[in-house]
Simulated scan of single mutants.
Amino acid sequence: MLMAIECSGICGGVALLEEERLVGCVNFTSSTLHSQRLLPSLEWLLARTGRRIQDVRAVGVSKGPGSFTGLRVGMSMAKGIALAQGIPIVGICSLEALALRAAAYTRLKLVCPILDARQGYVYAALYRIGNLLEDGFPQMEVVHEPAALHIEELLPWIQEPTLFTGDGLAAHSDVLATTLGDHFHRANAVGLVPSAEQVAVLAARRLRRGETDNIHTLEPFYLRHGYMEKSAKHS
Results as ranks from 00 to 15, higher is better:
residue 124 A to D: 02
residue 165 T to R: 02
residue 228 M to G: 11
residue 222 Y to M: 04
residue 49 T to N: 05
residue 199 V to K: 01
residue 101 R to I: 09
residue 163 L to Y: 03
residue 69 T to I: 09
residue 64 G to A: 02
residue 175 V to D: 08
residue 132 L to T: 13
residue 121 Y to A: 03
residue 54 Q to Y: 13
residue 83 L to H: 13
residue 84 A to P: 03
residue 218 L to M: 10
residue 183 H to G: 08
residue 157 W to Q: 09
residue 62 S to L: 07
residue 87 I to K: 07
residue 180 L to N: 04
residue 90 V to T: 08
residue 73 V to A: 02
residue 172 H to A: 04
residue 172 H to L: 07
residue 153 E to W: 14
residue 101 R to F: 08
residue 122 V to N: 01
residue 176 L to P: 00
residue 160 E to D: 11
residue 33 L to I: 08
residue 103 A to F: 02
residue 123 Y to Q: 03
residue 43 E to P: 07
residue 38 L to G: 00
residue 197 E to H: 11
residue 129 I to T: 06
residue 170 A to M: 12
residue 203 A to W: 03
residue 92 I to P: 00
residue 92 I to E: 00
residue 211 E to A: 14
residue 200 A to D: 03
residue 5 I to A: 00
residue 63 K to S: 09
residue 177 A to S: 15
residue 10 I to M: 13
residue 47 A to L: 11
residue 29 T to D: 13
residue 12 G to P: 01
residue 126 L to H: 04
residue 10 I to Y: 11
residue 107 R to L: 12
residue 164 F to Y: 06
residue 171 A to S: 12
residue 208 R to N: 12
residue 120 G to W: 05
residue 95 L to H: 02
residue 16 L to H: 00
residue 103 A to D: 02
residue 189 A to G: 08
residue 188 N to W: 14
residue 54 Q to P: 06
residue 57 R to E: 12
residue 84 A to T: 09
residue 81 I to A: 06
residue 171 A to T: 08
residue 77 M to A: 10
residue 167 D to H: 13
residue 198 Q to A: 09
residue 148 A to N: 05
residue 102 A to G: 07
residue 76 S to N: 07
residue 3 M to P: 04
residue 52 R to D: 15
residue 38 L to C: 07
residue 167 D to T: 10
residue 6 E to P: 06
residue 80 G to P: 03
residue 225 H to P: 05
residue 86 G to H: 11
residue 85 Q to E: 13
residue 190 V to Q: 14
residue 171 A to G: 07
residue 215 I to Q: 05
residue 86 G to P: 09
residue 180 L to R: 03
residue 44 W to A: 14
residue 172 H to D: 01
residue 161 P to H: 09
residue 6 E to G: 04
residue 154 L to K: 07
residue 196 A to M: 10
residue 124 A to C: 10
residue 155 L to P: 10
residue 78 A to K: 01
residue 133 L to H: 15
residue 87 I to E: 01
residue 16 L to R: 00
residue 190 V to I: 15
residue 71 L to D: 00
residue 65 P to R: 05
residue 43 E to A: 15
residue 3 M to Y: 08
residue 173 S to V: 10
residue 18 E to F: 09
residue 151 I to L: 10
residue 71 L to P: 01
residue 167 D to E: 12
